[in-house]
């Protein structure tokens, strides 16, 4: 099984890479962070003796992606699975954030994800193929103070469901993962701690999420919201008017971000 993982040196990417390696899959890992990519490559090769190919790539840059695709084509690599993990967020109010940084969120989370997904779908194993999009619990609600991020994740969520329908008859399964908090980095841990009890109960173990994500994707599921509390929150997203949710979330995140970012 040949698997491409984007954002492979980040918290969730690393754990998914480990999980894939433990299942004996062949890995093609990409990330913009060369040092991190080298570390995870060494770690996986030493731990599992797996075959790991890496390529530093800026997914928001079409040329950089073309160069990576050229490498894949040189070796005629066909993929069985694509894990779209690369994504980012910059916390804070819309007007207080740097304009280009806001654009960057969309450029990576959405544009770049479509670019690589399109390219890899054209290099897929025609007999069976799996795409996983890492959306977020944030995709379920309008989220003031995380507005751009939540909207980019909503985009991925809707896109994944539509793509799944389009490719259903072509042996492609699409799964969209909507995790709550994940302890991926020290920064994420601070954010979760600042949310107090809400942070604790909406946070799931990375390893378990990684394992179940792959299990479910291979079973043909379409949406995976880890944890029962997160599932309940996701349901509220459908039941409560969106403007009420926005007001509620604004009140909560305002306090959290003050605690977290100062």
């Amino acid at each position: 099984m040949n698997v491409l993982i984007t954002g492979a040196s980040g918290g969730l990417g690393r754990v998914l890479a480990n999980e894939c390696a433990s299942r004996g899959y062949n890995l093609f890992l990409t990330d913009i962070d060369a040092r991190g990519l080298y570390s995870i490559q060494c770690g996986i090769e030493r731990q599992y003796g797996a075959t790991v190919t890496t390529r530093v790539c800026d997914l928001t840059n079409a040329e950089s992606v073309d160069e990576m695709l050229a490498v894949m084509d040189r070796y005629a690599i066909q993929f069985d699975m694509l894990l779209n993990v690369a994504g980012l967020d910059f916390e804070g109010e819309f007007l207080q954030r740097d304009r280009e940084k806001i654009i960057k969120i969309i450029a990576l989370n959405d544009e770049a994800t479509l670019r690589i997904t399109h390219a890899i779908l054209n290099r897929r194993n025609k007999k069976h193929f799996t795409v996983i999009f890492v959306s977020s619990l944030a995709s379920m609600f309008p989220m003031p103070l995380k507005a751009t991020y939540a909207a980019t994740k909503r985009f991925l969520f809707d896109f994944a469901i539509s793509l799944r329908q389009e490719l259903k008859k072509q042996n492609v399964n699409v799964l969209v993962l909507c995790p709550g908090g994940l302890v991926t980095t020290a920064e994420a841990m601070k954010g979760i701690a600042a949310q107090g009890i809400w942070g604790d109960i909406t946070t799931n173990s990375l390893e378990i999420v990684a394992r179940k994500t792959l299990d479910r994707a291979l079973k043909g599921n379409k949406i995976y919201v880890p944890g029962s509390i997160n599932k309940t929150l996701a349901c509220f997203g459908y039941l409560i008017p969106r403007s009420w949710i926005a007001a509620l979330i604004y009140r909560r995140w305002n306090g959290v971000q003050k605690k977290w970012l100062t």
């Binding site: 040196s9 918290g11 690393r14 754990v15 890479a17 480990n18 040092r35 991190g36 570390s39 995870i40 060494c42 770690g43 996986i44 030493r46 731990q47 302890v183 991926t184 980095t185 841990m189 990375l206």
Partner: peptide
């Protein structure tokens, strides 16, 4: 959480 090499 893992280290950069993906170790516990």
């Amino acid at each position: 959480m893992t280290t950069e090499d993906g170790y516990e």
